[in-house]
Design a protein around this nucleic acid. Structure first.
Lengths: 210, 210
DNA sequence: TAGATTGTTAATCGATTAACAATC
DNA sequence: TAGATTGTTAATCGATTAACAATC
C-alpha cells in the first residue's frame, strides 16, 4: 500500500522528468531530482523503489525510461473520456484548456442548467436534464464538478448513481462518496486561505523582529 | 511553529464552522467537527489548541466565536489587494469569480501580453509592460500568476523585484523564491494525475479480486 | 579498477492517536 | 451533583532521513 504522501509526489517527479526529457537530458541521479524538488535524495530513491528498481547503481536513472515508467504508474498511458458539469467561469476555463489532450484527457461534453451557448472550444454544451441519459449512453471515465457549491452534492449523487467512478471536484464542498468512487478536490479558497495565513504570519514575524 | 499539516486543515475547519454558523448551529464538539471532516476528535482539539483554548470543558466550542477566531488566525479579517497576471482561460475565470470579495480579496487589475479586451467583470486589463509601473504605484498584497508555464518564472521575478510578497501560482512550474516570499501552488495537472493514478489502481484492485 | 550511485535496512523524527485530569 | 467535553501529556504510529552494502 502506497502512502498518500508518496502518491502526491509522483506527479512532481513526472513533471520534472518530462522537463529533463524535453531538454534532451539522458540521465539523472536521485540527488539532482531531489535538489530541484526540494526534497532529499533518500526520499526520491525510497519513493521510486516502491514501484520497482528503475535505476542502476553507479549510473542513476535513464530519463526516458523513468519518465515512461512514471507515466504508466500514473495511468497516463491511457485515454480518458471526461465530462464537465457546470459551465460557469471554471467549467468554461477547463473546457477551453488545450493541454488536457497531451496527457490523454478528452473532454467530451459540458452540462449546465442554463446553457448560454451550444458549444465551447468545440465541446457541446447540454442541458443538465440530459446528464443521466448521456451517462447511460456514453463512457465517462472522469467527471468534473464545476458547479456552484449548492448543487455539487446533488450532481455527485447523479454521477455516482449512473456509474461514474472518478470525480474531479472544484466546488468547495466535502463530497461523501462510496468506497469505490475516487474524488480529487481542487480547493481554491482553501489554498488562498493558506496564502493569507502565511502572509499574516510573515508580517507578524517581521514586526516582532523589529 | 505550526506544522504544515495543521495549517492545511485550518481552512477546512473554517469552512465547516461557516456552514454551521450559516445554518444557525450555536455549539459544536470536537467530536462532531471530526466526524464531518473525517479526522479524529483528538486532532481537532490538538490543532485548535495550538492557537489557544477556544473551547469550554463540558460544553464544546461556541460556533460564532470559533469561526471568528479561525478567520482571525487565517488573516481573513483584513482586506487584500490582488492582481492577476495572465488573462487566458484561468485568469479570466478568476477575474469573473464573485466569491473573493466575501473573504476580503479584491482583484484590482489584470495584466496580459495581448489584452483582447479592456476590462473583465469590471476589472481593467493592462498591457504587461505596465506591470512594473503599476506595482510601484499601487499596493499589491497578493499576485496571481495565471500565465503559460514558460513565462511564469519571469513574471515571478518581476513581481518579487517590485515588492510582491505573496504569490498564488496557477502555472505548472516550481517557482524558486526568496525566503520572505510566500507561494501557494494550485497544481491542476498534479491533482488530475493523482486522480488517474487512483482510477488505475482501483481498476487493478478490482481485476485482481475477480 | 575506482568512483558513483542505487536499493534497502535501520535510526530518527514528527505527526497522530489515546488517555485522562480538569472543569464547565 | 453527574455528564460531557475540553486542554494537554504520554504512547503509538508512520514517514523521513541516514547509512551502507551491492554493483554498475
Amino acid at each position: 500500500m502506497i502512502s498518500e504522501a508518496v502518491i502526491k509526489r509522483l506527479p512532481r517527479y513526472y513533471r520534472h522528468l518530462k522537463q529533463l526529457s524535453d531538454s534532451g537530458v539522458e540521465r539523472v541521479s536521485s540527488n539532482k531530482i531531489a535538489s530541484v524538488l526540494n526534497i532529499t535524495a533518500s526520499q526520491v530513491r525510497q519513493d521510486l523503489c516502491n514501484f520497482g528498481g528503475f535505476g542502476q547503481q553507479g549510473y542513476g536513472y535513464d530519463v526516458a525510461k523513468l519518465k515512461n515508467e512514471l507515466a504508466a504508474i500514473l495511468g497516463l498511458d491511457k485515454v480518458y473520456d471526461l465530462i464537465i458539469v457546470g459551465a460557469g467561469n471554471i467549467g468554461r476555463a477547463l473546457a477551453g484548456y488545450k493541454g488536457f489532450k497531451d496527457d490523454g484527457f478528452y473532454v467530451r461534453a459540458l452540462f449546465d442548467i442554463d446553457p448560454r451557448c451550444s458549444s465551447i472550444n468545440g465541446i457541446k454544451v447540454y442541458q443538465m436534464d440530459f446528464l443521466k441519459t448521456y451517462l447511460n449512453q456514453n463512457q465517462v471515465d472522469i467527471a468534473i464538478i464545476a458547479t456552484q457549491k449548492d448543487s455539487a452534492k446533488e450532481v455527485a449523487s447523479e454521477l455516482i448513481a449512473n456509474g461514474v467512478k472518478s470525480i474531479w471536484n472544484f466546488a468547495p464542498v466535502e463530497l461523501e462518496v462510496p468506497e469505490d468512487v475516487t474524488v480529487e478536490n481542487i480547493s481554491m479558497s482553501e489554498s488562498l486561505y493558506v496564502l493569507s495565513y502565511r502572509s499574516k504570519t510573515r508580517k507578524e514575524k517581521k514586526n516582532s523582529a523589529q
